[in-house]
Design a protein around this nucleic acid. Structure first.
Lengths: 257, 257
DNA sequence: ATCTATTTGTACGTATGTATT
DNA sequence: AAATACATACGTACAAATAGA
């Protein structure tokens, strides 16, 4: 059984903040203090009303704040309530995407990072992937093994090849690196799907892209870290040159989960 | 004058989502459609109640969601209301930090990224910094020019030297790169300040750190991109070896703005 | 399949706080 | 100083969802 919220005394938060924000912050602190984990139950609405001596609406606004940040999930019904929730990758992606909505990131910006990071990722994964994952990578490559005939098909293949990189990113033991590459890949994928980016396609060069990925899986399987790094590095350079002919400005919408 | 919210018809959102979330999403979409910018005013509370045919509480919860994501700010009083707000770096940092709270990132993870990115940053800034910024960098170095005598002083100097990197990050034309380095530097800074990390200090090696930074500013001023990259690369390697003797697990609290 | 208990979700009216003019 | 235009907070009543008997 989880003991009641913060203290037994009258709650007093930072008066510069609105009350819902004060409550939300207090609950966050309390979760950390109590060492709660994902799945653990927070006090019920009436309990929180009682503890903070605030109205139902105020408490509910606080819960919506925590929910918006991805830190809790709420269910109705018996056994329901609010539960600590591990912030999902999708939510984190969307929230970070909001920041860049106002920034105008360019494709060049993204590729500057991809060129710095993905070769490192490839090197650190060499020799560390299971046969299952290596198989999944090969399956992905197979889905775009034959040259695209239409622009739509080409677009679909491009999104598919980005999934190859997302799959690699998900294997990283470095969560920060993994998240970041996934984030960038998703932005590029969004651009390809939702906008008229990525035409005219350059069939010849994208063919090289497939080739790169085949050789990369080879190097990853054999544990050749330096080779994997080099192949990825070349691959990034090629992809960049293909993308950079496209429009520079991006993110004209909020990313959703 | 801004016309009313979404459409003139009865609002109908995704029924799988709670109503406040539906409203928040609808408002986001509407902001994008209308091409609203930071500072633009959203419809007043009564207007939104009218438009969505929902109760005040529901609308208010929706506004708290948008506020928690950093997308709006709300003011009371005449001329008050809710306004589109550019998501601040601090907010984005905190929201992304929540994601990693559950992940246990290690110092090694962070340095793997720093080693890949900061040399690139240094190279891209070489020859592109104003005298004013170069002066600020030198001022920073000056604050820890004399060796620290106590552990507390050493800690303070470490935080100061991290600010050097944050200052560099802020100069990047690549917002993604700048944000990311700033994010990592802030995590390391938090660790140094709030926890017992970073003892025993290694005075000799940190002395080298100062040296690196002096040489780096030199290279940045003279426009020597390759030199700057190399110096930063060496600097990162040294710093990593100093940090890695520390405990590996991090982020035992939620990052606040 | 229905009922019942539990817990959140929505509605609405009123009063209070706050900043502008 | 007073009036005005906003958001903020409170409290109650009722609706909807879900789990279990």
């Amino acid at each position: 059984m989880i003991s009641l919220p913060p203290a037994t005394t009258q709650f007093k938060g930072d008066p510069r903040l609105s009350r819902p924000v004060q409550v939300a912050e207090a609950i966050k602190d309390w979760v950390v203090e109590q060492g709660l984990h994902a799945g653990d139950r927070l006090p019920s609405e009436p309990e929180l009303i009682e503890r903070f001596s605030m109205a139902k609406g105020t408490i509910r606004e606080a819960m919506r704040i925590l929910e918006a940040q991805g830190l809790i999930k709420t269910r109705t019904g018996p056994g329901g309530g609010s539960f600590v929730h591990e912030v999902s990758k999708e939510r984190a992606r969307a929230l970070l995407g909001n920041y860049f909505y106002f920034k105008n990131l360019t494709i060049a910006d993204i590729y500057q990072l991809r060129r710095a990071l993905e070769p490192e990722l490839a090197a650190s994964l060499a020799g560390n992937l299971s046969d299952e994952v290596l198989g999944q990578l090969e399956d992905r490559i197979a889905t775009y093994s034959s040259p695209a005939k239409t622009v739509d098909e080409e677009r679909e293949q491009h999104v598919g090849s980005l999934k190859f990189h997302a799959l690699l990113a998900a294997q990283s033991e470095n969560e920060l690196m993994g998240f970041l590459i996934d984030f960038m890949v998703n932005i590029l994928s969004d651009l390809t799907v939702y906008r008229r980016l990525y035409n005219p396609p350059n069939i010849e060069l994208w063919g090289k892209g497939r080739d790169f990925q085949v050789r990369l899986v080879e190097a990853l399987r054999s544990g050749d870290a330096d080779g994997a790094r080099q192949i990825m590095s070349d691959h990034m350079a090629t992809a960049q040159s293909l993308m950079e002919v496209q429009e520079a400005q991006m993110l004209r919408r909020f990313i959703s989960e």
